[in-house]
């Protein structure tokens, strides 16, 4: 039998990283919000959460939150984020002390969109919608947040 912990992520990029893409996300968020409103931006993030991340959503549907943890570890490591993850019986908590995306945008653009962190809040909430889990995000400061995965009661 295959050990789920050993199976690769659906999107399992390696090689170099191009952090400037976060700047293009920032520009895109401001563009969409200013012309179409924040709900339009959130709908796009919901599509990312549910269509692009179908595989993580399938794992959540099946009662498995480990794939999201594996995803977090892989990509925060790749981008050298300062974070930790605690896995408890009732909840899994990702604590991001220094978000590589937020800080890179601040460095290259000088100003981070007030809606920048919606990419996290809305995408993950949508990914978990209709599954046995909820994923809630609390922004704890500039470029820091806490995401919590809990079983719905």
């Amino acid at each position: 039998m295959t050990d789920p912990a050993q199976t690769p992520l659906r999107y399992n990029e390696d090689g170099n990283v191009h952090l400037d893409f976060h700047g293009a996300v920032n520009t895109t968020i401001d563009f969409i919000v200013s012309r179409y409103g924040v709900e339009a931006m959130h709908e796009i993030f919901r599509r990312v959460g549910q269509d692009v991340y179908q595989d993580m959503r399938r794992h959540l549907m099946a009662g498995d939150a480990d794939e999201v943890v594996k995803h977090w570890r892989h990509f925060f490591d790749r981008e050298k984020g300062d974070y930790d993850i605690s896995v408890g019986d009732d909840e899994i908590v990702l604590t991001v002390r220094r978000c590589p995306a937020w800080h890179h945008v601040e460095k290259i653009a000088g100003k981070v969109s007030p809606n920048f962190c919606d990419q996290t809040t809305i995408t993950y909430a949508a990914m978990a919608e209709g599954t046995p889990f909820a994923i809630d995000t609390v922004i704890t400061g500039p470029g820091s947040c806490r995401q919590v995965i809990r079983r719905r009661t």
Binding site: E13, H22, A101
Partner: peptide
């Protein structure tokens, strides 16, 4: 965050 690796999606 949406990883920079997933920007294109």
């Amino acid at each position: 965050m949406i990883p920079s690796d997933h920007f294109t999606r």
